[in-house]
Amino acid sequence: MALTKKEVEHVANLARLDLAEGEAEAFKGQLDAILSYVEKLKQLNTDSVEPTSHAVPINNVFREDIIIQPLGQEKALANAPDRADGCFRVPKVVE
């Protein structure tokens, strides 16, 4: 199945990736090659097969609700690209 350039741009938008000039075309060719390779899965009838999301069957892991020492504001902000007044600063969100 061949992707259209428009589909590639749609996926890039979903993935929050800006595409440079010509990048959509390049991705289109590479993704087409990979998608046509994975088409082979269609050879298998899996109608009655349960999907596996995880190799080890662990569900609903609980622990005691105990208070632990949090990271602290200074450490949490130490890697921030931009900060102000003890907060992460980002471009204006609301109009």
């Binding site: 996926v11 979903l14 993704l31 998608l35 994975v38 899996t46 999907p51 596996t52």
Partner: peptide, 25 residues
């Protein structure tokens, strides 16, 4: 990009779910 496509609306069953089923096999 590939992963986003495999999970995106309309393709999830054909790619991601299918892959999880073959994983079981």
């Amino acid at each position: 990009m590939l992963g986003t496509y495999a999970l995106s609306s309309g393709y999830y069953d054909a790619y991601y779910l299918k892959a999880q089923k073959v994983r079981t096999l």
